[in-house]
């Protein structure tokens, strides 16, 4: 990163603002926080931010209004909208108002970080990675193929999605619930051990005897795909 990315976060919930800004700073970003709409608009008008994270429900002025004002003043920094509203029409309203992405509260920090990175890549002209690598495991995102060393791995669509999700978050523990939501979509809270069984299958396909184990179980929490134990 040649230049520190500067983020403006407009969020009136102190807890959320705290954990997000802490997380973003730890990732190396510079973060300004506004706790209400008017302050948010004032900071946004400085036009010094590379990306803005806007809550919709704010005291003083709502997020969509701020977005409207900034866009009319030709401040075109990308915007990630945060909202407690879950409905499809709210998402559409947010995106139509000029938001670049929409994230529903409550969210996992990893999710927010991924969205921020993705938006920055998009506006920076950068490309989504087409290849993920963890140790000698290679995942070709375009060809939807995976291989370990020279050996191709035959994966079903769902197994590939599971592996992709783990690889995108490599080095980080992902919880069982996160896996369910991101790989199987929607809010699916199964009574059966869907995740365990699929991880088990995936392990059978990608782990090789004598080679370091890539997928490790974090007892009572989730899984991690990582090179080093």
């Amino acid at each position: 990163m040649d230049k520190t990315i500067h983020i403006l976060m407009v969020e009136d919930d102190r807890q959320i603002a705290d954990f997000v800004s802490r997380g973003l700073r730890e990732e190396g970003y510079k973060v300004d926080i506004a706790m209400d709409g008017i302050e948010g608009l004032r900071l946004g008008r400085k036009a010094i931010h590379d990306i803005m994270i806007l809550d919709i429900m704010l005291p003083g002025m709502d997020g969509l209004k701020i977005l409207e004002c900034l866009r009319s003043e030709k401040i075109n920094a990308p915007v990630l909208i945060l909202s407690a509203k879950r409905s499809v029409s709210d998402r559409i309203t947010g995106l139509q108002a000029g938001g670049d992405d929409y994230l529903v509260k409550p969210f996992a920090f990893a999710e927010l970080l991924a969205r921020v990175k993705s938006i920055l890549r998009r506006v920076g002209g950068g490309q989504e990675p087409i290849r993920l690598e963890v140790s000698d495991l290679a995942i070709d995102l375009l060809g939807r193929r995976a291989s370990r060393g020279e050996e191709p791995i035959d994966l079903q669509a769902q197994e590939f999605r599971l592996l992709e999700y783990l690889a995108r978050n490599s080095g980080r523990v992902v919880t069982r619930t996160q896996i369910l939501q991101n790989v199987w979509g929607y809010n699916f809270n199964p009574a059966t051990n869907v995740v365990e069984v699929h991880i088990c299958r995936l392990r059978e396909k990608i782990e090789r005897p004598g080679k370091p184990q890539l997928i490790r179980t974090v007892r009572g929490a989730g899984y991690i795909l990582a090179e080093n134990p």
Partner: peptide, 19 residues
């Protein structure tokens, strides 16, 4: 590990709330 476990349990509670 404890924090991870708490995270998973919290995630699950959140998904229950969503349900």
């Amino acid at each position: 590990l404890t924090l991870y476990q708490i995270m998973e349990r919290m995630d699950c509670l959140l998904s229950v709330c969503n349900s």
